[in-house]
Design a protein around this nucleic acid. Structure first.
Length: 479
RNA sequence: UGGGGGAUGGUCUAAUGGCAGGACGAGCGGCUCUGACCCGCUUAGUGAAGGUUCGAAUCCUUCUCCCCCAGCCA
């Protein structure tokens, strides 16, 4: 309950002084039930659960009346009072409403409105041992609260006749129940039952695992309340079953973060670069803008020195067409810094992998501009090796490999298409020094990579990837 | 096979008898010190068949397909 409250607040809503609980109305609800008995519209039924099911009939066959259906009002009043007084065991009696056992809508076949449960309630404690069912409490609670419209999901459409019946019989204020389709998202599951399975099966670390579509999970992943609200506005509300593509949610997220998240440089998979013509001990403080979308976010200083790290993906020994990044002999720009040219690559003797690059820089291009007007196609992010700090980065991907895990063929379990690579942890990432004091939960854009938020900054700095940037090159490269 | 709902581009959603539009995605191009953002263009739809009407996504008829209901759960 507390987590529901904090989720709602986080999303940006407030109930002011209107935090209501159905349990606040237990006494009134009881009195309404008594009234129904007096009207001859409710009776205590002493059939057991199996018998009640049997008497109910099926979808196509009508039910038959309970043998207890015609108890006298006095008898019912008496029995119900004793139910409340705790004179009976769980399951021995229930209070049912008298409608029509032959109704084509099974919800109208004398539904149960009160049952005995000798259980402690989280708000009323031991005060009650009988509790109203949802169908009974729902409409009357709405009525007591004087709400105008009661919104719920489609599966309650069949319950609306009962909702209406109860309020009409009691001549109570009658709100209008309106049903709408629940929200389904592609590439994940939304049902509580299935999410619980993921938690209990250890497929995720908990309800707030950043891969979970729960509010707690989205929050920890780095989603902003505003992006979620925008998303909800865009998808609208309808009565048709639908599955919204998660790409739209991600779009709303990028849209919001693009305006808010400060830009920083972080190298996830470091490749060492030595600038051969840059003095050994020299360090320059370069200016870098914090957010081109918002000049008011100002600038910061970032250190540049002879030994740097760049992204492994940003170098190719044998660059394909349209690859604008570093390659042997190729000149590129280091963001906010200088043009550098790759003059040599050093391979690991054993693996043959490139483990280090030797480059030269052009001192005339400080800040990233060339006076002679020559252009470079690529701009890379980088960090200064000596000044960077280590961080762990967790890359998240969709939890499932199929857009609709619930539609597994041959009725296979939805967990068969769990994505084994939905979490990739990188432990030796290098981030710019200014991130040393990054606050927990704060969001950044790692330039050219994506949006990341601080999961924790206690013993070590840990980032969650919220969502990647759109990556046109990745699409070209795949072809 | 009883009852209740639903069907508009790949996806979500507008159009309440009067030009089928928007967003996301995808594709192409432009811009660029982020292959980001932004901008331009393109793609692609009324479940089916009849009927009413000057005119139908919308009204009528028939059909098809999908979802929900037989808890003392919500």
């Amino acid at each position: 309950m507390e987590s529901i409250k904090s989720d709602v607040k986080w999303l940006g809503f407030d109930w002011d002084d209107r935090l209501y609980f159905a349990s606040d109305y237990f006494e009134q609800l009881y009195q309404y039930a008594v009234q129904l008995i007096k009207l001859g519209k409710a009776y205590v039924c002493s059939l057991n659960a199996d018998e009640i099911r049997e008497y109910r009939g099926t979808l196509t066959k009508p039910g038959k009346d309970s043998p207890y259906r015609n108890r006298s009002i006095k008898q019912n009043l008496d029995l119900f009072e004793n139910m409340r007084a705790g004179k009976f065991e769980d399951g021995t009696h229930v209070l049912r409403v008298k409608i029509d056992m032959a109704s084509p809508n099974v919800n109208m076949r004398d539904p149960i409105i009160y049952r005995i449960r000798h259980e402690k309630h989280h708000r009323t404690g031991d005060k009650w041992c009988i509790y109203p069912t949802y169908d009974f409490a729902h409409g009357l609670s709405d009525s007591i609260e004087r709400i105008t419209h009661s919104l719920c999901t489609l599966e309650f459409e069949d319950h609306r006749p009962l909702y209406d019946w109860i309020l009409d019989e009691l001549k109570a204020y009658h709100p209008q129940q309106i049903e709408f389709a629940r929200l389904n998202l592609s590439d994940t599951v939304m049902s509580k039952r299935k999410l619980l399975e993921l938690v209990e099966g250890g497929h995720v670390s908990g309800w707030d695992d950043p891969r979970m579509p729960t509010i707690a999970g989205l929050r920890r992943r780095g989603y902003t309340p505003k992006s979620i609200r925008n998303f909800c506005e865009r998808i609208g509300v309808a009565k048709a079953d639908s599955t919204v593509n998660i790409a739209l949610l991600e779009h709303c997220l990028r849209e919001d973060l693009n305006k808010k998240a400060p830009r920083v440089m972080a190298v996830l998979r470091p490749l060492k670069v030595i600038i051969e013509n840059y003095p050994e001990n020299k360090v320059e403080e370069l200016d870098a803008e914090n957010n081109p979308e918002d000049p008011e976010m100002g600038t910061r200083k970032i250190p540049f020195s002879r030994v740097l790290y760049v992204e492994q993906d940003d170098f190719r020994v044998d660059p394909p067409k349209k690859f604008f990044r570093l390659a042997p002999g190729r000149e590129i720009r280091l963001k906010h810094a200088y043009y550098i040219k790759c003059v040599e690559m050093i391979k690991d003797g054993k693996t043959g992998n490139v483990k280090e690059l030797r480059c030269t820089y052009d001192p005339e291009t400080k800040g990233g501009w060339s006076k002679d007007g020559r252009k470079v196609r690529g701009t890379l992010h980088w960090v200064s090796a000596d000044h960077s700090i280590e961080a762990e980065v967790r890359l998240y991907d969709h939890l499932f490999t199929k857009a609709n895990p619930e539609e597994e063929k041959d009725g296979a379990d939805f967990k068969t298409c769990l994505n084994p690579n939905s979490l990739e942890t990188l432990t030796s990432c290098k981030v710019e020094p200014g991130l040393k004091d990054a606050k927990s939960r704060s969001s950044y854009q790692f330039l050219r990579q994506g949006y990341f938020c601080v999961d924790s900054n206690e013993e070590k700095l840990i980032f969650n990837r919220t969502v990647s940037l759109r990556d046109t090159w990745a699409k070209i490269d795949k072809k």
